[in-house]
Nucleic acid binder design. Structure first.
Lengths: 115, 115
DNA sequence: TAAATATATGAACATATGATCATACATTCA
DNA sequence: TGAATGTATGATCATATGTTCATATATTTA
C-alpha cells in the first residue's frame, strides 16, 4: 500500500517514540489478558468486597477448586491480587487501588453504554 | 470439597447477589479481551494522541492493513473507538474518557510495579 | 504419626484467537 | 466510465487459553 496524502511520516515517527515501551505494552497486554476471563473477573469482584480463602471462592463460583487455584495464580503473577496466610488458610486480597479502579472504570463504561 | 470453617454461606450468597450481572461481566470480559492484544493496545495509544485514518495506522504499526482493519473492527464493536468519514478517509478516534482512563490506569499499575 | 483438610500443580483436550492472504467493496478523480 | 486508492471481509492455519481430572504438597489436628 502506498502512503496516503494524510500521512506525515515524521509526525508518525515522533508518535511512535512517545508510545510506552514494548515491555510496558506487553505487560499491559498480559494484565488485560488476565482480566478477560469471566472467572477471574468474578474472583476480583468478590475480593473487592472481602479478603477470602480459596475455599470460600470455590464455594462462590461454579468451577472446580483446581480452576480457582489456576486463576488465582494468574492474578497473583501479575500482582493483581496478593496472598497472606491465616492459620491453615491461604487468603487472597486485591493488590492495590489501581486494580479496583481498573475494573470499576470498565464497569462504568459497560453500564453507561447501555444508555 | 467440604465447606471450610471460614465459610459463611449466607454471607457469600449475599456477595454473589451484589456482583454485577452476568451480562455486565460478559461485556467487561469482552472489553478486556480486546485490550489484551499488543496491536490493539498500540492502536489505542496512537489514537490517544491524534485521530487517524487506517492508512496512517497501518504505516505506524508493523502489521498488514488487513490486520489493522480487523483490530479496528473489534475495538469499534465494543465502542472503544468510533469512526468518522473525512473525504475518502475513514478516521478513527477514542470513544470516550473511560477508555483513556482504562489504559492509563493499567499503564500506571505496570509502571509503578517496577519500583 | 496418621488422617483430614486446604491448596497447588501438571497433563490433556477442546475451543478461541490473531495474523495473513486473497479478494471484495466503495469512493475519488482522470 | 475506468483506474487508482482506501478500507473491509472471509477463509485458513498455527498457536494460545481455560477447564477438568488426577495427583502432589502443606498444614493441622486427632
Amino acid at each position: 500500500m502506498k502512503k496516503c496524502e494524510r500521512l506525515d511520516e515524521t509526525l508518525i515517527k515522533q508518535m511512535m517514540e512517545i508510545l510506552p515501551g514494548n515491555n510496558t505494552i506487553i505487560r499491559m497486554a498480559d494484565i488485560f489478558q488476565a482480566l478477560q476471563s469471566e472467572t477471574r473477573l468474578k474472583l476480583l469482584f468478590l475480593l473487592t468486597n472481602k479478603d477470602m480463602c480459596v475455599c470460600e471462592l470455590t464455594y462462590a463460583l461454579d468451577v472446580t477448586q483446581s480452576a480457582i487455584s489456576h486463576s488465582l495464580r494468574t492474578l497473583r503473577q501479575l500482582d493483581l491480587v496478593r496472598v497472606k496466610k491465616e492459620g491453615r488458610y491461604t487468603v487472597y486480597y486485591i493488590a492495590d487501588e489501581h486494580v479496583r479502579l481498573l475494573i470499576e472504570m470498565c464497569k462504568q463504561h459497560v453500564i453507561e453504554e447501555g444508555k
